[in-house]
Design a protein around this nucleic acid. Structure first.
Lengths: 213, 213
DNA sequence: GAGCAAAGTGAACAGCGTCCACATACGCTA
DNA sequence: TAGCGTATGTGGACGCTGTTCACTTTGCTC
């Protein structure tokens, strides 16, 4: 990281940590400008290295983008986990289930609004849902999808969600927040104020909770 | 169209309908490969014209893409209208409202699955929601957002949706289907079979109907 | 029929991803 | 300690993209 961000020329022929430097540069470009902004040549430039050096560490620019995307997904997972960690200790399992679902939804939406570039990058290219890439997971070792599943399991266990409605509920809940996030980020709701979007998010989570069962 | 698709050389110096030819070529490229695939030079090539000729009709490639995007939105609106036209004549206003909401949702999702390239293009770059661009509207003169509003108005008028919950309901309903469409198209649900996605869509609409009020 | 603006051409530039042949230096083995 | 193989980085080139500038052709109007 210390070397990756610096544009100054290095002395040694070997870079030492080029792969990480390129990844860091790519992540920053994604943060600022989304997936289309991650330029291979620019990454090498920031690392103080010739363009072709990148090909010793990534097969092509798609491979670099894929690595960046994976890093973005990990950040998203972290954001959700932080939101879940913020839940006050509560005994009632139904209340816990409700707050968990809300935490997942709002953590998701909050990250999308706070880091639009990374969020858009995370979903720029199809990752397979069942892939268990360790790089995607946050500290608990769960990716966003699994965090959502956890919340829904709590809903189901506490009786807030009928057993028969549990299968596939992830996709329904996920669709809602993902849709709102994208409409607000790169869709027609682009110019809607942030707090208004968050208010919509709250209504959305409530709608899911009521509508699922 | 007859001239736009043909790659053969024309005889006259003037093309005659270059703007439409470029638009048609761009639309086809978007249909096949999404927004990133609409290449200005390629459009001029297909129109049998030099690259620079495009600049007499579009300020730059972003302007061309914008025109293509608008055309894609119009197609989407048409798809929704077709689905609404398919509603059987029914007297009960509540039944009509329910079917209208379903038609909007499934028309939206159906278009996304049938024409993924166009759908992704339609939402590739932020259009403002309140713009009333005639090119976006289908035969009824309504864009997708307005079609959804209509369905929700029917819900509200027939008592299925409480008056106090009516404002902003568009965004909630829209988010759900948009999210599912994108997850299925370019997100983690990429490899899910089509009919399964449609089944999820039905559950989603039901969830919205139940959860809104 | 003269002239003018609209429409299309041609050459050029920078930036991108990528391939090729070549240079360098690190680390293992002898 | 000397040598050598290989991982890593360099330099140059190619074709593609969007875009600009100066130029030519054409159709329409006075």
């Amino acid at each position: 990281m210390k070397k990756g961000a610096s544009v100054q020329k290095r002395r040694t022929f070997r870079h030492g940590d080029l792969r990480n430097a390129l990844l860091a540069a790519g992540l920053e470009m994604a943060r600022v400008g989304g997936p289309d902004a991650v330029i291979l040549r620019e990454a090498t430039r920031q690392a103080g290295v010739s363009p072709n050096a990148a090909y010793r560490h990534f097969a092509n620019q798609a491979a670099l983008l894929e690595a960046v995307r994976s890093a973005c997904l990990a950040r998203l997972a972290t954001s959700i986990e932080e939101e879940m960690a913020r839940i006050a200790r509560v005994r009632d399992p139904q209340a816990l289930a409700r707050r968990s679902l809300r935490a997942v939804g709002m953590g998701y939406l909050g990250f999308a609004l706070a880091e639009p570039g990374m969020f858009r990058t995370a979903f720029s290219v199809p990752p397979l849902v069942h892939e268990q890439n360790p790089a995607n997971t946050a500290s608990m070792g769960l990716n966003p999808f699994q965090l959502l599943s956890l919340a829904l399991d709590r809903m189901s266990a506490s009786g807030l969600l009928k057993k028969k409605d549990r299968p596939g509920a992830e996709y329904l809940a996920w669709s809602t927040v993902h849709g709102l996030a994208l409409l607000a980020l790169e869709g027609p709701l682009h110019s809607m104020p942030r707090d208004m979007v968050l208010a919509l998010g709250e209504r959305l989570v409530a709608m899911v909770e009521r509508g699922l069962s």
